[in-house]
Computed example of a mutant assay.
Amino acid sequence: MSFIPRIYLDPHEFEALASNKDYAIPASTAHYLGTVLRLKASEKVVFFNERDGEWECEISYIAKNKGTIQTTKQLRLSITPLGPTLVFAPLKRDATDLAIRMATELGVKTIQPVKTLRTNTVKIKEERFRSITIEAAEQSNRLTIPEIKPIVSLFDFCSSWPKDKTLWIAVERCAEYHIEPNSTEKCRGDDGILIGPEGGFDSSEIKNLLLYDFVRPLSLGNLILKAETAIVAGLSLFSQHVRA
C-alpha cells in the first residue's frame, strides 16, 4: 500500500524504541491498525514520539486487540519540543476542537486555556484535547504533542508568565484604545500569543494587560475575526516571522 499510517506512541506508557527489536503494541493501536485500517502482517507502519523520534516498522502479527511490530529503520531523531504558547479563552465545543487541531498543526508547544470576563465555557476536558492533538500530530507530520495546561484565570496566568518572554495579545480595534500595534518581526519562537473570547476582551482587561512590561499588542488586520479564525491568523503570522 502507498499510504503508511503514522501512529503516536505515548513515551510514558511505551518502552523506548530501538533498531530491529520486536514490540507488543497497545490493544487500541492493534484494533485501529487491524480492524479499522485492515492492515496485515508484513505491512509498514510509522511510529513516533518526542523521546524516540520516528521509526518505520513492520507488522509481525496483528489480531483484533493485539499485535506485534518490528522496528526496521529510524526515519527521524528525537527532538526537544519547541514552539510558542497559545493562550486562549475556550469557545463552544466544535470551535474549541478546531482551534486545538489548528494550533497543533501550526506548531504550538503549549496550549493554555484561560478564563476571561467573556469566556463562554470553563469546562475543559484535557483528555479530549490530548486526543485531538495526537490526531493532528499524526496527520501533520510533527513529532511532538503540545502540552495541555489546566484552565486558570487570565491574570493568574499573567502573574506566572516568565518576564523575559513576550506575550503578544491580539487586540481588536486598536485605534479605539489608542494602541499602536507591534510588528511580530521581533517575536521569538518561545513567545506566547493570547487570543480573546468570542466578543473580544473587556476594555478593563485590555487596560490591565497593557500594564505588564512583557505584553505587546498585536493587530490581525482591520476585519473582526471569529475567535477560532483569530487563533489561526495569529499563529500563522507568528510562525511566518519566526521561520524568517
Score class of each variant (00 low, 15 high):
163 K>P: 05
208 N>R: 15
27 A>H: 05
72 T>Y: 04
123 K>C: 01
55 W>A: 04
123 K>E: 14
53 G>A: 01
179 I>F: 10
25 I>L: 02
208 N>I: 00
224 I>K: 13
128 R>Y: 02
225 L>M: 09
71 T>L: 03
52 D>C: 09
94 D>H: 12
109 K>M: 05
132 I>R: 07
48 F>T: 04
42 S>F: 01
179 I>T: 11
194 L>E: 05
223 L>D: 13
105 E>I: 01
142 R>C: 03
239 S>M: 14
178 H>F: 08
163 K>D: 12
85 T>P: 03
7 I>H: 02
188 R>T: 07
13 E>I: 07
195 I>Y: 00
1 M>L: 09
46 V>N: 13
219 S>H: 08
134 I>C: 07
4 I>S: 10
213 D>W: 00
226 K>A: 09
130 R>E: 12
110 T>Q: 10
80 T>R: 12
178 H>A: 13
69 I>C: 11
65 N>A: 11
146 P>C: 10
189 G>E: 11
83 G>C: 04
158 C>S: 10
196 G>D: 02
148 I>A: 11
63 A>L: 01
91 L>M: 13
172 E>V: 12
26 P>Y: 04
209 L>Y: 08
96 T>R: 03
41 A>S: 15
225 L>C: 09
11 P>Q: 03
128 R>P: 05
156 D>L: 02
22 D>S: 14
218 L>N: 06
108 V>R: 04
126 E>R: 13
167 L>A: 10
